[in-house]
Design a protein around this nucleic acid. Structure first.
Length: 480
RNA sequence: GGUCUCGUAGUAUAACGGUUAGUACAUCGGGUUUUCAUCCCGACAACGCGGGUUCGACUCCCGCCGAGAUCACCA
């Protein structure tokens, strides 16, 4: 396979969210699949929309997802600089070349005049095309003057890797602005120059650029450049409505999910498979599997709706997978920021044990906070939880107290405090008291945790330890 | 309005002229010595509409309807 050079070229206007991160994932996969490389290029030609710190946010997001770039900010590369604002001279040089060849012109028309033209067309209900108002004798270019492409209206056909064969008529071609009057290039022009200079083979971007593609094709032609492969990525749709997911719909930043306890593996997995599949029924993919199996022609060509519930399901799958395949320690390392504050008072091995018995209940790592507090601090005794429990409310206070005392006695007898022996003791207790598991176990479980749910009883006892377990049960018995 | 794109269950998708239209999430049942979860079993649920072509159409063609994108000195 030919080595692909792809790029992710965001503008630094804010954080990366679910709706736009796919245009970083797919270029990464294509680059790595072919042994090529991915370039990160910051398209900061719009000084008004520039947001301080946005570049760092972008870098942070890519690094978290494991989408390392091979050239770009922080690491440099043979095509430096990677900020378009630092490449102004280059764009001007290319634009001037076009002027010299009669394929571009300096445009002295004031913007009010252009607005008039546009209004004129709107009134006549004809499409507004600037090329119909092209100034007859354009002046020599001087700074402060925009440069426009002098287009040649004609038909274009091309192949889009996702959308298929495309065809448009001359009516879509216009004299687009190459260099703005502030001296910065437009996106339309800058990306053509940069992609050519950087040797980009696959231009992957959102479908919103599909309708401007003929203008890009005209530019490639004017420069005598080979067309790169064009890949239009359909939008990710907001959970409701039919609009693409954007910040206005409350699209969270990708890193916000990290802070909420979503694993990078799960995020990448979910997002890569939203609007793409390899034709099999596989749902869970590692990054390496995605690299191996990804193919552009299996990208869906209609928008895909973002479904957070499924993301969380994938996350749960990944939490279990990491635990099962890489061990408790590997999962623990990813949880360090998600424990209740009081967990810090306990040794790490204890936290690893707690994790080992609770991990299969986690949807996100942050669930840890609410689900494990009773392992690290004395639970607040709430007798109503016992007396109102659906299995226990039929018993009198005296019966509950008696049951609890018998339980304490039986557990006190346990020599080796481990899950197996504890289960034995609990089973014997079940026989002795002639109670159902639902009754006896609920009582002990609640008395130990006063939590709405907890892991299997013998495991909870084992991890909590003999001393703490018996102390808690005695404390409850005294309170009745 | 012009141009372009898209249309399988609530959601994400499989099918590439012949299947009881498959899978996953969600939902609803059921199972596992408690709870919550995992895991297992089961149920519900879809080819936008109308014409063709064909022995046969979710698949090909046309029309309609619906949805989206774009028509900036934003990217």
């Amino acid at each position: 396979m030919e080595k692909a050079i792809t790029r992710f070229a965001p503008s630094p206007t804010g954080y990366i969210h679910i709706g736009n991160v796919r245009s970083a994932i797919y270029p990464y996969l294509v680059a790595h699949q072919t042994g090529g490389k991915m370039i990160l290029r910051i398209e900061d030609t719009d000084r008004e929309r520039y947001v301080e710190g946005a570049t760092e946010l972008i870098e942070d997001t890519l690094k978290w997802l494991g989408l390392d770039w091979d050239e770009g900010p922080l690491i440099g590369g043979p095509n430096e600089p990677y900020f378009q604002s630092e490449r102004k001279d280059l764009y001007l040089k290319w634009a001037k070349k076009l002027i010299d060849e009669g394929r571009a012109y300096a445009d002295p028309t004031p913007s009010e005049k252009i607005d008039e033209y546009r209004a004129e067309c709107n009134a006549k209900k004809v499409p507004f095309l600037y090329r119909n108002f092209r100034p007859e004798n354009p002046p020599e270019w001087e700074p402060g003057m925009p440069i426009r492409f002098k287009t040649i209206p004609k038909e274009y056909s091309w192949h889009d890797e996702v959308m298929g064969d495309m065809h448009t008529g001359p009516e879509v071609l216009d004299d687009i602005i190459l260099i703005k009057k502030d001296g910065y290039p437009t996106y339309n022009f800058a990306h053509i120059v940069d992609d050519a200079e950087m040797g980009v083979t696959h231009v992957m971007r959102g479908v919103e650029y599909l309708s401007s593609t003929p203008n890009y094709l005209a530019l490639y032609e004017a420069f005598g450049l080979d067309r790169p492969k064009l890949v239009s990525l359909p939008h990710i749709l907001a959970p409701t409505g039919n609009k693409k997911l954007g910040k206005r719909d409350g699209a969270k930043s990708v890193t916000e999910y990290r802070d909420d306890g979503v694993l990078a593996e799960a995020m990448l997995n979910y997002l890569a498979c939203l609007g793409w599949n390899d034709g099999t029924e596989q749902e869970i993919y590692t990054k390496d599997e995605l690299i191996e199996k990804f193919s552009l022609d299996r990208i869906q060509n209609s928008g895909a709706r973002y479904d957070e519930t499924k993301l969380l399901w994938v996350n749960g799958q990944w939490i279990r997978r990491i635990f099962d395949e890489q061990g408790a320690r590997a999962l623990y390392d990813k949880t360090v920021n998600f424990w209740p504050e009081t967990a810090a008072n306990f040794p790490e091995e204890y936290r690893v044990k707690v994790l080992s018995i609770i991990y299969d209940r986690l949807k996100t790592l942050s669930d840890l906070r609410g689900m494990t507090t009773y392992f690290f601090e004395e639970p607040k005794i709430d007798l109503d939880m016992i007396f109102e429990n659906k299995f226990l409310k039929k018993f009198s206070e005296a019966e509950i107290e008696d049951l609890l005392k018998k339980s304490i006695a039986a557990l006190t007898e346990v020599k080796d405090w481990n899950a197996e022996k504890l289960q034995e003791a609990l089973n014997n207790l079940l026989a002795e008291t002639e109670k159902k598991p639902a009754e006896l176990f609920s009582l002990i479980r609640i008395a130990l945790s006063f939590a709405p749910f907890s892991p299997a009883l013998n495991l909870t006892l084992e991890v909590l330890g003999r001393e703490a377990s018996l102390a808690r049960l005695n404390e409850v018995a005294r309170s009745i």
